[in-house]
Design a protein around this nucleic acid. Structure first.
Lengths: 200, 200
DNA sequence: GTCTATATTGTGATAGAC
DNA sequence: GTCTATCACAATATAGAC
């Protein structure tokens, strides 16, 4: 209701995103979040009680941001190749505009914490059955090679998301300037890769 | 010299690997490392002085473990397609036998710490010039599509390493049992993908 | 080399005034 | 709703005996 109230709460979430993205759950400091907003740590506890609960907010929201609409694309009524193209577009769009969110989600999911997985699965559940059927039909018509939805999606994710997730390493390894420069030419390259492989 | 001495030091490193792999730098606890070895925290400081220095040991060693011999493969005197196959084999081998090391390296490299990059680059420097020449020659002979070494390597890394790095997510997302099961069929799939794309 | 004991900070969290 | 002050504890690190 009160303007100041709502503002502070969302300002804290925004600052928390920056902090968690940069340092992860364990490395994040409530003091830095408070400083960035211009309030005291007490305010964070007033709105979120614990660091863990604040993190769960940010993590859940981030998962939704990356994978939230993926299922919609997956069940769209489209020709197979068009659907694949839209899947690639969806993933590349996320990789480009939400790269830090993406790195955060994948990085944190690797921590041995066990209470993360439920939050993830609460945010996103894919219906793969239909897409599997479509692939199977196309394969039996000899339009594409035989492949499961999981394998195809895994390859799309890999080609779209790895450059972002391994960004710092690629910079050291491949002397490549920036991820964004790669991604500008990358949609065609990925579609070529996927489609040539499917229709070989 | 003394048997007990050398043993304890390497036992600490081993325990530290497990701890850092599971919890990252910030989440790791010297107490847990000491407990696992069966000594006190004081011993860790005796051998490594600080947590950061211990971490640098583990991190540098891990980077070497994953990317150490990559450059050797890159400069081997082999036909192009054979070299590409060996690159895929090299990466898949690492993905399979050192998956936790790989996840650790990529995950930690995403932290905003700035003192990690020098350690990484100290461990591995790739000579891409020759491989770039080979690709350029093959392209001008119309044997493959025109592609840079960086783009090709990035795709190989992506297809080999992403399934490992995003293992926990894939499990939630694709209902796939385990990474190892995927990887058993995966070499052929990746080679198909890469070669069909190059020679399309 | 290995331990016990302690110093020194940090940090997340709470109590209570305004 | 926001702040000040403080607690309680955890973690790295050090000193010094053996």
């Amino acid at each position: 209701m009160n303007k100041g109230t709502t503002d502070t709460r969302s300002e804290i979430i925004n600052a928390a995103r920056t902090e968690f993205f940069a340092h992860g759950y364990e490395g994040a400091r409530l003091q830095r979040i408070a400083d960035q907003v211009g309030v005291t740590k007490a305010m964070i506890h007033y709105y979120f009680n614990t660091k863990k609960k604040l993190f769960e907010q940010v993590y859940g929201q981030s998962v939704e941001e990356i994978f939230g609409e993926l299922d919609d694309v997956l069940v769209r009524d489209l020709p197979l190749f068009k659907k694949i193209e839209q899947l690639v577009e969806y993933c590349l769009e996320r990789a480009k505009t939400s790269s830090s969110v993406l790195s955060f989600v994948i990085t944190e999911s690797n921590r041995q914490t066990e209470w993360l997985q439920p939050i993830f699965e609460e945010q996103v559940q894919l219906g793969l059955a239909r897409f599997n059927d479509e692939l199977e039909t196309a394969a039996s018509n000899y339009e594409i090679a035989s492949i499961t939805a999981a394998d195809l999606l895994l390859n799309i994710f890999a080609l779209c998301y790895y450059p972002v997730v391994a960004g710092p390493i690629n910079q050291s390894l491949l002397e490549t300037s920036s991820i964004r420069e790669i991604n500008s030419q990358r949609k065609g390259l990925i579609l070529d890769t996927i489609l040539n492989w499917l229709t070989a």
